[in-house]
Simulated scan of single mutants.
Amino acid sequence: MSEIAANLSRIREQIKIACQKCGRDPKTVRLVAVSKKKPGQVISEAYAAGQQIFGESYVQEFTQKVEALQLPLEWHFIGGLQGNKVKYLRGKTALIHSVDRYSLAREISSQWGKIDATAQILLQFNLGRETSKSGADETEALDLARKICALPHLQVRGLMTLPPYYDDPEEVRPYFRRLRQLGESLAAENLPNLQMQELSMGMSHDFSVAIEEGATLVRVGTAIFGARD
Rank of each mutant, 00 (worst) to 15 (best):
Q70M: 13
D143N: 15
K133I: 07
K92W: 07
A119M: 02
P152I: 00
A136W: 10
N84S: 01
L162H: 10
P152S: 01
L122V: 05
L95C: 05
I96C: 06
A119N: 05
A141C: 02
K87P: 00
W112N: 11
T93E: 06
K133E: 12
L104D: 05
A94P: 10
V86D: 03
E67G: 08
E67K: 14
F62L: 09
E138W: 01
L69R: 07
I78T: 05
R101A: 04
S132P: 00
E61A: 04
G158C: 02
A94M: 11
L104R: 08
A119H: 03
G91K: 08
I96H: 10
W75R: 02
T139Q: 15
C149H: 12
G135L: 08
S109M: 07
L162K: 00
T139G: 14
E74A: 00
K92L: 07
I148M: 02
E67S: 11
H76C: 03
L154S: 10
N126E: 06
I78C: 03
I108K: 02
I115M: 11
M160Y: 05
A141Y: 03
T63S: 11
L122Y: 00
P163Y: 10
E130D: 14
Q64H: 14
V99C: 02
G158W: 01
N84H: 06
K92M: 06
L123W: 01
E138T: 08
H97I: 06
Y102P: 04
R129H: 04
A150W: 11
H76M: 02
S134W: 12
K147Q: 15
Y102L: 09
A150I: 11
R146V: 13
L144P: 08
P152H: 05
L122A: 03
L151R: 06
F125V: 03
P163S: 11
L69Y: 10
Q111Y: 01
G135D: 08
L122Q: 00
A136G: 13
R146W: 05
L122N: 00
V86L: 04
I115V: 13
G113A: 08
G113V: 07
A68N: 11
V66M: 10
S98R: 03
G128Y: 13
L154I: 14
R106G: 11
L73C: 11
L81S: 06
G135S: 08
I96Y: 05
T118S: 12
S109I: 07
G128L: 09
Q70S: 15
L144G: 08
F62Y: 00
S103M: 10
K87N: 06
H97M: 06
S132V: 14
A105Y: 09
Q111A: 00
R129D: 13
S103A: 15
D116K: 15
R101K: 05
E138L: 09
R157F: 01
K85L: 04
T93P: 04
G83A: 11
E67F: 09
I121E: 01
M160H: 04
K114Y: 12
E138C: 07
V99Y: 01
E74H: 02
R157T: 05
L122R: 00
L144Y: 06
G135F: 10
T93A: 14
R157S: 01
L127D: 13
V156G: 03
T161K: 07
R90W: 10
E107N: 03
M160L: 07
R106T: 12
L73N: 04
Q120F: 00
G79H: 02
L104N: 09
